[in-house]
Design a protein around this nucleic acid. Structure first.
Length: 624
RNA sequence: CGGGGCGUGGCGCAGCGGCUUAGCGCGCAUGGUUUGGGACCAUGAGGUCGUGGGUUCAAAUCCCACCGCCCCGACCA
């Protein structure tokens, strides 16, 4: 047989291998003795075996949609037998799903190694003391799974690993000569999410690639950050996902620069803002936009009765004005901090992230009781006029606005003719509103779009938050002790898998990109009990694996329709059909899952055509 | 944590104004006929009706409590 088309390292192997299936296995493992087949051996080391027999495998496709699944990816992953839920937000990755995750993790591993990162594995469980040092034992609150050992010592199941990294760093890193470092792992993370949803998209136990950079200074951190950004772009491209990198908020992680890698997906939990003219992309939590100023004629302050009209919608309808003529007043409080009254125009929402940046973390909208107590009016009727004791912060769009309408601090009344500069003692103006559709880009004036997106990865410049609190320092050239500058970078592996379903699957099932497909070839054997069919299919399977392809063989003795439908559901990129018809004509059908293209190949060149087809599909991804 | 929905063989569901052996479709097992887009016949196995308590001569069915799961929101990142 001619194998000239195969790269040298995949050249031919001897024929007389023991057939593992006789022993009741479902995987062919007979390759390892050929030293020149290292890619196959590599695949095995990575856990990616080359042949799987449907008949003897744990592949349980569901004929009907499971009732708990709502989102597209959840439905497909469940129906195709990729995952199985054990409890809310906790899943088993069944053989097919696990193979996808292994493919994904191999891509991640290659790209992380390429930027000089070192893989390791930290514990999933960690003693309380480390988290008390950083302050996150408290900060994390109910999101953290906690447990006690037999001696009543407290531990957590790690939601992330900054503390553990800082602990390693403080004991191992001594000198500037030891830096920079990038450490990474692929670890199971635990977060007791208030509401797990969409199957694997937001779960309580999930696999994360998390890496941590350790640098001497800002320049080093910027370099590590940039390396990660490049690696992440390669990773998501190689997984054939459509994504954008956006400006993001650091949240609990720290205040430094951060970027999220977002997949534009209908059911995505996040909103991202994109400029249609320039490259401005941002999570809506931190996005900035240019809004239109709006004012009415300057009139004196005047109370107006608005019985039972509390919301912007109700008041505008009742007074026959536009939302941009209203000033919304929101009372924010934080434990141990000065309360604040936030003013935002009626057609915008207050942005809690921006409020947090201005006032510090911990602020939340006050409850009805606190509002009534402070303002002497119910929510819906409070306003800034006559308020002296509370700091008032107004969105900058309200600067100099006049003729506005706001609550009168008296139930059932609003006031009209509000002029901010004249009537309100504003402590500061700032950008406190959430961007809305119709706003213009602050960089170029282009129109801003808002889209749903799914967070695939997130990179943070942590700075010294953890190195300072945990005492992770190094000695510089002059022998001065300095805190290590850290960065932290995460990718959700299951989210990549689910995202591929969201973006690529059709109504018949998954459509995996070759790069992360659980197998390259789906070999549908029709009438497998017919001797010639059986012979030809095992012969072909052998040739395919020898050519370096991974194959799943559907040799179940069931009707063709079920096989084809299952093949569509499972979504292997290339389907090869061997049945009585093909045996007679000596030509087999090759079917592309993604496009539905079908062509036939002469028996003798099936392997060649399959390899070519796979390469073609791979090139399409690489060419992106 | 607020709102809504659901819990009945492996899966999807019906039954739920109290009444004999709890049904249906799919799947599963055995035998036979079939076999290129979810075949057919025959026979058969399989259920603490989420859990606990109560009402009643009698509870899957009515009442109470709890648990679990899903969705929307809040929260988180």
């Amino acid at each position: 047989m001619y194998f000239g088309f195969v790269p040298f390292r995949l050249c031919r192997i001897e024929d007389s291998r023991p057939r593992s299936t006789e022993a009741g296995w479902n995987c062919d493992l007979g390759f390892s003795r050929s030293w020149f087949l290292w890619p196959l051996t590599f695949a095995r080391i990575c856990g990616i075996l080359n042949v799987m027999r449907f008949d003897k495998s744990l592949i349980a496709t569901l004929r009907e949609d499971p009732k708990e699944a709502e989102s597209k990816s959840h439905r497909i992953l469940l129906r195709g037998g990729f995952i199985k839920q054990l409890a809310s937000g906790i899943h088993t990755y069944l053989p097919l799903g696990w193979r996808v995750l292994l493919k994904v993790s191999n891509i991640i591993r290659e790209e992380m190694d390429r930027i000089g990162a070192q893989e390791m594995l930290m514990p999933a469980i960690s003693p309380k003391e480390l988290w008390e040092e950083s302050g996150r034992w408290k900060e994390y609150g109910a999101d953290m799974f906690r447990l006690k050992d037999r001696k009543n010592r407290e531990y957590c199941l790690c939601p992330t690993h900054e503390e553990i990294v800082a602990d390693i760093a403080r004991s191992k890193i001594r000198s500037y000569r030891d830096l920079p470092q990038i450490w990474y792992q692929m670890q199971t993370k635990f977060r007791d999410e208030p509401r797990p949803r969409s199957g694997v998209l937001r779960s309580r136990q999930f696999i994360m690639k998390d890496s941590y950079s350790l640098d001497c200074d800002e320049t080093g951190l910027n370099r590590s950050f940039e390396l990660h950004q490049q690696a992440y772009e390669k990773i998501f491209k190689r997984c054939d996902l459509a994504f954008v990198a956006v400006d993001a908020s650091g949240g609990l992680m720290g205040a430094g620069e951060s970027k999220e890698f977002m997949a534009v997906v209908d059911g995505g939990e996040d909103l991202i803002v994109l400029c249609d003219q320039c490259d401005y992309r941002s999570n809506i939590q931190v996005a900035q936009g240019e809004g239109q100023r709006a004012s009415l004629a300057d009139t004196p302050l005047e109370p107006v009765a608005t019985p039972d009209k509390r919301t912007v919608g109700e008041v505008t309808a009742f007074l026959n004005v536009a939302p941009q003529n209203l000033v919304k007043s929101m009372f924010f409080t934080a434990a141990g901090k000065e309360p604040a009254l936030i003013l935002v125009r009626g057609d915008y929402e207050a942005n809690e992230e921006k409020i947090a940046r201005l006032l510090g973390h911990g602020y939340a909208p006050a409850g009805a009781e606190a509002i009534t107590k402070t303002f002497g009016a119910q929510p819906g009727y409070i306003g800034p006029v006559g308020i002296d004791a509370i700091g008032i912060y107004a969105d900058e769009l309200l600067r100099d606005a006049q003729g506005m309408i706001t609550g009168a601090n008296r139930d059932g009344y609003h006031i009209t003719g509000l002029a901010l500069t004249r009537d309100v003692r504003v402590r500061a103006y700032a950008d406190l509103r959430t961007v809305k559709l119709g706003d213009r880009c602050t960089k170029c004036g282009g129109a801003l779009k808002i889209e749903n997106a799914l967070e695939l990865g997130h990179i943070f410049k942590l700075g010294t938050k953890y190195s300072l609190s945990l005492g992770a320092c190094y000695l510089d050239e002059k022998g001065v002790s300095k805190p290590i500058i850290m960065g932290s970078y995460g990718i959700g592996l299951e989210r990549i898998m689910a995202c591929a379903c969201e973006q690529k699957a059709d109504d018949r099932g998954a459509v995996w990109p070759v790069s992360i497909a659980p197998f390259d070839i789906h070999l549908a054997v029709l009438n497998p009990h017919e001797e010639t069919v059986a012979e030809m299919s095992s012969e072909t399977a052998r040739l395919l694996t020898e050519a370096g392809l991974s194959v799943i063989i559907d040799d179940r003795d069931i009707s063709a329709g079920i096989k084809f439908n299952d093949a569509d559901l499972i979504g292997i990129p290339i389907r090869l059909t061997i049945g009585p018809k093909g045996v007679k004509t000596n030509r087999f059908d090759i079917n592309l899952r993604e496009t539905g293209d079908i062509f036939t190949a002469e028996r003798s060149e099936v392997a060649v055509r399959c390899v070519e087809t796979k390469n073609l599909l791979q090139r399409r991804i690489d060419g992106n």
